[in-house]
Nucleic acid binder design. Structure first.
Lengths: 187, 187
DNA sequence: GTCTATATCCCGATAGAC
DNA sequence: GTCTATCGGGATATAGAC
């Protein structure tokens, strides 16, 4: 693992554990085992470090969404798996994502950065809705069901769980909850 | 409005508009029309100001939930109104709520403060679920429906919308979305 | 109660040696 | 590429006059 990667991993760890306010260059450097000056040989400024964390250190929800193949397994099973994974994903990324609201500049910089990748926080919802539309076309979902609404509901609930799990540490098993939620949207 | 209230209102405004990082004592004092020293005559420290904002300046979702009376109006109409209000509520409070993740101390302090009031971020979900249980007992909901799941889905989706609306400013009308979501969870 | 002025600290970022 | 040392600035919080 190169210096750059070590710095990003350390930054992600500090942000998760201590919050953005404590994620100072000094603290990141200490956690990475380098001097502060070394950070600035690999990144232009602190915002660039933060953007690097967002794009490379957060676990991928998209990878799991990519495995979704219409017609394979059961729709219900696929939705449970996606919802459960989404709960874990949002739980992990919530503290770092929330840091975006520390400053308008950070939010704007991040928006610009990921806009270049053509992705965004709505992407998972869109992809899940597209999958559901395909299943509906295959007659594996009633023609009356609303793919967009179902995707919004399931991933929205997963998103909020990501927040709530930092509040109550004693939240239940993601899969158990996912099963209940899916049952409520699939007739 | 007393000095204390002016300070809290100014602090809330700055946090919403500029983010927590820019919500410095200097900036809050300027927005409130006082000196920085005046802040410390009314609050012990900056954390106390933040806690005051959280408890007194955020709009109440609970007030609307209190208006819910099982058996009155239609279940569908009630759910649309709650969901739509929740979208607005979460949109307004998201930037300030996200600031909680700036530091572990802030999160811990806030948790302790609202624990005394016996409330928390799960309260709206619980109250909505209780309302739905009552409607189910009145046979206005199928006996097979899951009140907890429906409440989690609707308020979860509203919560995520609160975030997404800060990303895309061009999000649709809350009521229109609320109607689609409610339709998907009510058979 | 509110002000001006200041103390103290620590942040992000850079200079320059090796 | 990495270090030590340091700068300029701005943060929270306080002292003391009115």
């Amino acid at each position: 693992m190169g210096t750059r990667e070590k710095i990003l991993a350390a930054a992600a760890e500090v942000m998760r554990e201590q919050g953005y306010a404590r994620a100072t260059t000094k603290e990141i450097a200490r956690a990475a085992g380098f001097s502060e000056a070394a950070l600035y040989k690999h990144f232009a400024d602190k915002t660039e470090i933060f953007l690097g964390v967002m794009t490379s250190q957060l676990p991928g929800l998209n990878a799991v969404l990519g495995d979704l193949t219409p017609g394979r397994h059961t729709v219900r099973g696929n939705l449970v798996r996606i919802t459960s994974t989404a709960i874990d994903f949002y739980t992990e990324s919530f503290p770092i994502g929330a840091s975006l609201f520390s400053s308008r500049e950070l939010l704007a910089a991040h928006r610009a950065a990921i806009h270049e990748h053509g992705a965004g926080p709505r992407t998972p919802v869109t992809r899940l809705a597209n999958y559901l539309r395909a299943e509906r076309d295959l007659r594996r979902l009633p023609s009356t069901s609303d793919p967009d609404a179902i995707a919004t509901l399931l991933l929205g609930a997963a998103f909020q769980q990501g927040f709530l799990r930092h509040w109550d540490t004693d939240a239940g098993d993601p899969t158990t909850l996912a099963r209940k939620l899916v049952k409520a949207v699939l007739p």
